[in-house]
Design a protein around this nucleic acid. Structure first.
Length: 511
RNA sequence: GGCCCCAUCGUCUAGCGGCCUAGGACAUCGCCCUUUCACGGCGACAGCACGGGUUCGAAUCCCGUUGGGGUCACCA
C-alpha cells in the first residue's frame, strides 16, 4: 500500500551535518571491493593507499565486501581478493574473515540492516517511489527539449496516492529514489581540494530496486556510516557520485544514523597503454599474472605506491615500513599515472637483490617448475641454496630463475643446446672444449672455484692464446646449453668434476 | 551535450613565488668494470601544453584556450 504523502524533510536542519574531524588513531578507512573478477593493480593500489594511511595514522582499516550484484559476484573472486591481500601483506583490522564490531562484512548478508534503514528513510520522506522507466525518462527529456542523456528529472517527487495506484494497476513496481537537496554541494577532497557541484547536477537517484534490493548507491554510504568510516579513499571514477552520497549522509543524519560525513579523497586512475584506464583484461594489470611472472610483494608494493605518490625527491626504492612512516593521502597527486612495466620490473629487481639469500632461494622454488621434484629433495634444496646467490643480482623477476638455473638440475643427457648458443660456436670450439676437458679431468687439480678458474685460464688463455670471452663461451654452452648463464666457474663447481667433464665432452661430440 | 576532474623529460615523479641555466628514477644511447648476462660506476639525450594576467620576480597564484579523462545505470 502506498504511503501517505509526507511533508518534505527539513533539509535546512540536516544541512549542518559536519565532516569528520578524525585524526590519528581515530581514523577509520575501508577497502570495499566487489568480487567481480581477478584483482587488478588499480584496485590493489587503492587497497594499498588505504592500508598505508591506516598504518601511518595508527587508525583502522576495514575490509568489506560489496557483493550486492548477485549476477556478477562470485565466491572465486572473493577468495582471490583474500589471496591478493594476504600475498601482499595488506592486513586489515576489521572485516571479512577477521570479524569485528560491525559484522557481517559482506553486504549480501546485511539485508535486514538495510531494510530497517530504508523503512526509516521512507518514513522520514527522504526516499520516494519512482515508476519511470529509462525509456520514459529519455522521452521526457526529449519532449522538454533537453539532452536525452541528461537523466532523471525528479518529476515523481510529489506523486499522489492516486498516481501511484494507477502505476501499480499497470503492474509496475516502484524503485526508491533519494530526494537530493536542490542546492550546491561542496566538499574538501583530500587529494584535490575543494570541489563544488552546482545545484541540479545530481538528480534524485535510485537506491532500492523494485524488488526491494538496495543498490551500491545506498549500501556503500550506509555501511560507511554504520561502520564509522572517517576517510573514504577511492578511485576518481566515484568523484561525481560524491554529492549524491553526501546527500544520503544528510538523510542518514536526519534519522539519527550518523553524525558526521567522512572525508573524501579521490585517487587518480592507473592507466594502461594509450589514454585508457588500465583494463581488467590487460595482462599487465592482472595481479596474479604479475605474481606468476615473478614480482615479489615488496617490489610490487613499492612500485604501486609510486603511482601518484613519492617518498622523497631522490629515492624510489624503499621498504613497506618506510612507506607507512611517510605516507599521507594529502600528498597524493591528483593526476593519473601510467603503469610502466619496465620500471616496475626494475624496482622489483632492487627488492630481489635486497632479499636475504636464504629467503631468496626459498622464494625461487615455486618458479622452478618441474626442474625440482615435488616436493623438492634435500639435495635439490641444498643445490638451490648454493646456486641462488649466483643469480640473485641477475634477475628482476623470479620467473627468470627457471631459465637461469634449470641446467643445474638436469643430467648431462638432458641438456638442450639452444639454437643461438650452438650458432655462436666458432671453429676452434672443439679444441677449446678438448683442452678444458682434459685439464679439468686431472684429479690433481682441486675442484674449487679458484682452481678451476686458474687452470682454465692457464690452458685456454695462456696455452691456446684465446681471449677470455672466446675461451669461455663454448664451455658455457656445454654446461648450460645457453649463451648466457650464471658465472661459469661457480656453475662448474656446483655440477662437480664428473658432470662438468661429461658435459664438455658431450658438446665435443656434437660439433 | 551538462556537470566534474586533470595537465613538469617517452614514463613515474621532486618542485608548494626567488635555492630552478627545473632535481631523481625507469627507459634509451655511449663509456668503464667484466668469463656470458646482469649488478655497479661515469656520462649523454630529454620536460614546465598554449595565451593572458597578478608580482620586483612564476613551473609554482588567478583567468581563459587547447588537450585528455570521468560521470550522467533499477553495475559497483
Amino acid at each position: 500500500m502506498a504511503a501517505a504523502a509526507r511533508p518534505p524533510p527539513r533539509m535546512g536542519l540536516a544541512m549542518s551535518v559536519p565532516f569528520s574531524t578524525a585524526t590519528g588513531a581515530d581514523v577509520r578507512v575501508r577497502f570495499c571491493p566487489s568480487p567481480t573478477g581477478t584483482p587488478h593493480v588499480g584496485l590493489i593500489r587503492t587497497a594499498l593507499f588505504n592500508w598505508a594511511y591506516a598504518r601511518h595514522t595508527g587508525g583502522r582499516l576495514v575490509f568489506r565486501i560489496e557483493d550486492t550484484d548477485a549476477a556478477r559476484d562470485s565466491q572465486e573472486s572473493y577468495e582471490q581478493l583474500l589471496d591478493a591481500m594476504r600475498w601482499l601483506g595488506i592486513d586489515w583490522d576489521e572485516g571479512v574473515e577477521t570479524g569485528g564490531p560491525h559484522e557481517p562484512y559482506r553486504q549480501s548478508q546485511r539485508g535486514d540492516i538495510y531494510r530497517g534503514i530504508i523503512d526509516r528513510l521512507v518514513e522520514a520522506g527522504h526516499l520516494y517511489e519512482s515508476y519511470a522507466t529509462a525509456e520514459e525518462m529519455e522521452e521526457r527529456n526529449r519532449a522538454a527539449g533537453r539532452d536525452p542523456r541528461q537523466g532523471y528529472d525528479n518529476h515523481e517527487r510529489d506523486l499522489t496516492d492516486e498516481q501511484k495506484a494507477a502505476f501499480r494497476a499497470e503492474g509496475r513496481q516502484p524503485s526508491l529514489r533519494l530526494r537530493v537537496p536542490d542546492e550546491d554541494l561542496s566538499f574538501d577532497d583530500l587529494v584535490r581540494g575543494e570541489i563544488t557541484f552546482p545545484a541540479g547536477s545530481s538528480p534524485d537517484f535510485v537506491v532500492v530496486r523494485p524488488n526491494g534490493q538496495p543498490l551500491y548507491t545506498f549500501v556503500n554510504p550506509v555501511d560507511d556510516a554504520l561502520m564509522g568510516v572517517t576517510h573514504v579513499l577511492r578511485g576518481e571514477d566515484l568523484l561525481s557520485s560524491t554529492p549524491r552520497q553526501i546527500a544520503l549522509y544528510r538523510a542518514l543524519a536526519d534519522i539519527g544514523v550518523v553524525d558526521a560525513i567522512p572525508n573524501f579523497g579521490h585517487l587518480p586512475y592507473v592507466m594502461g597503454e594509450g589514454n585508457k584506464k588500465l583494463s581488467k583484461r590487460d595482462p599487465q594489470s592482472n595481479l596474479f599474472l604479475l605474481r606468476e611472472a615473478g614480482f615479489i610483494p615488496e617490489g610490487l608494493l613499492n612500485y604501486l605506491s609510486l603511482l601518484g605518490w613519492a617518498l622523497s625527491a631522490d629515492r624510489d626504492v624503499f621498504t613497506r615500513d618506510e612507506l607507512v612512516a611517510a605516507f599521507d593521502v594529502a600528498d597524493v597527486l591528483p593526476n593519473p599515472s601510467r603503469f610502466d612495466a619496465k620500471k616496475a620490473e626494475s624496482l622489483n629487481g632492487d627488492h630481489v637483490r635486497a632479499l636475504d639469500p636464504a629467503d631468496f632461494a626459498q622464494r625461487l622454488v615455486p618458479y622452478l617448475g618441474d626442474a625440482l621434484s615435488t616436493p623438492p629433495t634435500e639435495a635439490e634444496l641444498a643445490l638451490l641454496a648454493e646456486a641462488a646467490p649466483l643469480v640473485q643480482e641477475r634477475m628482476q623477476l623470479l620467473g627468470e630463475a627457471d631459465g637461469m638455473l634449470r641446467f643445474l638440475f638436469l643430467t648431462t643427457d638432458e641438456v638442450h643446446y639452444e639454437e643461438d648458443a650452438l650458432g655462436s660456436l666458432r671453429d676452434d670450439a672443439h679444441a677449446t672444449l678438448a683442452a678444458a676437458s682434459a685439464a679439468l679431468a686431472d684429479e690433481a687439480v682441486p675442484f674449487t672455484i679458484e682452481d678451476v678458474e686458474r687452470v682454465l685460464r692457464e690452458v685456454l688463455i695462456d696455452g691456446l692464446g684465446l681471449k677470455p670471452r672466446l675461451a669461455f663461451a663454448p664451455l658455457r654452452v656445454a654446461l648450460s646449453g645457453r649463451r648466457i648463464s650464471p658465472p661459469l666457474f661457480e656453475s662448474m663447481v656446483l655440477l662437480g668434476r664428473d658432470e662438468t667433464v661429461a658435459r664438455l665432452q658431450r658438446l665435443m661430440g656434437r660439433i
